[in-house]
Structure formats: C-alpha cells, structure tokens
Design a protein around this nucleic acid. Structure first.
Lengths: 209, 209
DNA sequence: ACCAATCTGTTGCAAATGCAACAGAAAAAA
DNA sequence: TTTTTTCTGTTGCATTTGCAACAGATTGGT
C-alpha cells in the first residue's frame, strides 16, 4: 500500500464512530444478496467468509470473488447493465457491515468529526481493491491450468511468507475460482506432484521449488 | 456510476487547476514505463492509446490493459512484489498526465481551493476503474474462446449502443487481450461467422443475434 | 450412529486449444 | 515507389482441457 493504512483498525473505527452503518449476520449457506436493498452499498466482511458467484446460461458456476475478514465487496463495483446475475453466498456463518456509498461521499452531519477519516479510509480500501483485482487478472490471464495453479500458489505463498500454504477453498471451489474444469485441475495437480513441483496433503500444499 | 460524475470534464479541470501535475508526450511504439520515476504515480491518458503488457518467462505476451483517452492507469494499482515485469507501451502518439498519489491525498497548499474536488474526482475515477476491472474479470473467467469473444463483443456493443462494432485492436492484440491463441481465435471467429452469429468485415463486427 | 449430501480422485473419450509453419494482404518504413 | 515488416487466415498435428460417469472418502445433519 501507498500509505501505512491499517485496514482492520479502520474497520473498527467505523463501527465505533459512524452511526450510518448497518450490521447483519448470515448463516452458512445463506444468500446474502437478497438482503442487499441497494446497489450503492459497500459491504465489509467483519467475520466469516462469503463468495461472489456467477452462474452462466450453461449452468457453469464461477466464483468471481472470495471474501474473508476485512474484505470489501458490493454491487457498486459492478457494471449496472450486466446480464449475468451475481449471487453472494455465505460460506461460513458471517457478519457483514453495510454502508451506503452516499454516506461516504456526503457528510451526514455538518459536524461529524469522523467523516474525513471515513472518506480517506474508504479511498484506501478501494485502492487496495484495485490491487486485488489486478492480481486476480494476472492469474486469469495465465494460458493454462498449470500456470494458473502455480501463480495462485505463488500469491498465497508470498502473502503468507511461507512455502507451505493451506488452500482456503475446497478443490471444487478452487477450480471455479481459477475458471477451469475440476477434473482437469486434479489431473494437473497430479502432474505437478509427480514432477516434484509440489507436495500435497489434503488442502495443504508445499512448494518445492 | 454512482454520482453523475463527468470524467472528461474533471480531467480538464485538473489541468486548469492543479500545478502538481506533469504532462509528457510519447511517440507510437515508445516505452512509457521508463519515464515513470515513481510507482506512486497516477497516469491519465489525455490523448492516444497505451497498452499495459506482461511477458511471462515463456515469452508469451499478455495485454493486461488497453487504455485510451481519459483512462487511468499506474503502478499504484499493482502489487509491489509482482515477479512479472510490466511494460506500458504507446500504441499511438500519446499524451499522458502524471500526478503523484501523495498530491491527491495531501493538500499541497493549505488554501488550494481545488483540492477537495481533486480528491473526490479521483475517488470516482478509482471506483470506475474497479468496475472496469470487474468487467475484465467477467470476460477472463469465461471458459472458452467463443464465450470470451461473444462477451467481449457484447461489452463493446452495449457501451456503444450499437450492434456493429469496431475492434480497437489488431486481431493479434485482441488474442493477447483475451488471453487465447491467435490462430485458435481466428478459427473460432470463422465458426461464429459460419453459424451466423456475426458478420465480419475487417475489424468491424456486426452481431446478428 | 446413521443417512444424505458433497467432495475427491480417477478414467476414457470427445472437443477445444495451442503450436508451428507458411503464404498472401496490409501497413509501415525507406 | 519499393522494400521491409507486421498482420491475417489457414492447416495439420500434438497437447490440453472439458465432459460424463463412477466409487470411495469426507462432511454435515438428524
């Protein structure tokens, strides 16, 4: 990040200082989308995990985004005219903070002392989101399943500063996230193992290179 | 967009009101990257077209982004640790505006009357960038070449409100943009033509559905 | 503890894609 | 204008991927 912005600290401050927010709880498997009244809402995951999902006309599922604690998402980030319906599904029991984008743009009370901080913190979060999205684009532009897997492992590994990583998905979902066929992906994981690139135990992968 | 934000108007205002900006001209084919002194710079295309390009270790080229008039780009938007080198190349004679992200965050003079507008305009531009990136992600998550082409055409078509579109790329570059093999893409374009989905004359495509 | 649902690994086969190579068209440079 | 370079369309072939189906493992619910 550009600034030494502390996301989780900022999110706590919002909860303490802003009275325009709304917090809702969702059970595992619940569809979050139906509770989003307004496109112009920013949503922040306080606890749990949610996936942003698209089903195309063939019934293919794609995990457009996977959000965990302190991640931000929302329809604000998507073109209004999209012909695909997007769903947000809680993968675990989750707690989501909602705030209208208008409330970030416009000061609620003339005197609200927190507003400047809210505004610039949100700007930082959106910039961080841009970086995430570009990372995802780098992943998706990889030409084949092998390169997607290796890039994905690299990203996780460099985030956690560890050659051994735990995949935060089921393999079924990982395939949907990388936008490849699950069986083909399993096959490719097998090849990577045989060729000595990785060690694989359950959903724990160790990079051997 | 959320607000009725006018991007080109805003960009003109920056040029008229902010003295912290820097404008440079680039000739077709020139590498813009080498002129970017600072990662923390926002770059806006005033005139012309530039591509953001990655070459992987196999020499495969990917067009990560294609930017035209009023588009914003910059290394600020990319993770600092990326092991791929990114290049920005002018595809036409171009004019680029540079502004340090610090100058957006921090008021230059205590009294600068333009600063609030600069800040909120930039926030709008970054939000718009998020939408663009999500659109691109939707494209890249399509499972096969046909769906990528059709989605790409759809996006162009709905942007221009016209069933007939002109591709702003050479076909070679379009393949790099969609992250597919060029010859396979040409083949697929042929099928789409045969099957009556599109009409194709040069780089003009008409959607027939 | 049981049953149901989901996930995982696997395989054969069909289809799609990538790769390499080439010739003519088009565009850029000289 | 001529020459050189890049772009486009095409094809054969090897490889990768997707699809369908299945059995065993794992997980979740009751």
């Amino acid at each position: 990040m550009i600034t030494n912005f502390n996301k989780s600290e900022f999110i706590q401050k919002i909860q303490a200082n802003c009275d325009r927010i709304n917090i809702k709880k969702f059970s595992k498997g619940e569809n979050v989308t139906t509770y989003i009244e307004n496109r112009n809402q920013l949503c922040i995951v306080l606890k749990g995990e949610v996936d942003l999902i698209r089903y195309d006309f063939n019934g293919n599922k794609t995990i457009i985004g996977h959000f965990t604690e302190n991640d931000i998402f929302g329809e604000v980030f998507y073109p209004a005219n999209t012909n695909n319906e997007l769903f947000v599904e809680a993968k675990k029991n989750s707690e989501i903070l909602f705030i209208l984008y208008e409330n970030v743009l416009n000061r609620c009370k003339k005197t609200c002392p927190f507003h400047d901080e809210l505004y610039s913190g949100m700007a930082d979060m959106v910039l961080q989101k841009v970086i995430e999205l570009n990372t995802r684009i780098e992943l998706l532009t990889k030409r084949n399943t092998r390169d997607k897997l290796l890039s994905y492992f690299d990203i996780l590994s460099s985030n956690r500063l560890n050659k051994t990583i735990t995949i935060p998905f089921s393999y079924t979902d990982l395939a949907d996230y990388l936008s490849v066929d699950r069986s083909a992906m399993t096959r490719e994981l097998g090849h990577l193992k045989e060729e000595g690139f990785i060690r694989k135990v359950g959903n724990t992968i160790t990079l051997l290179y």
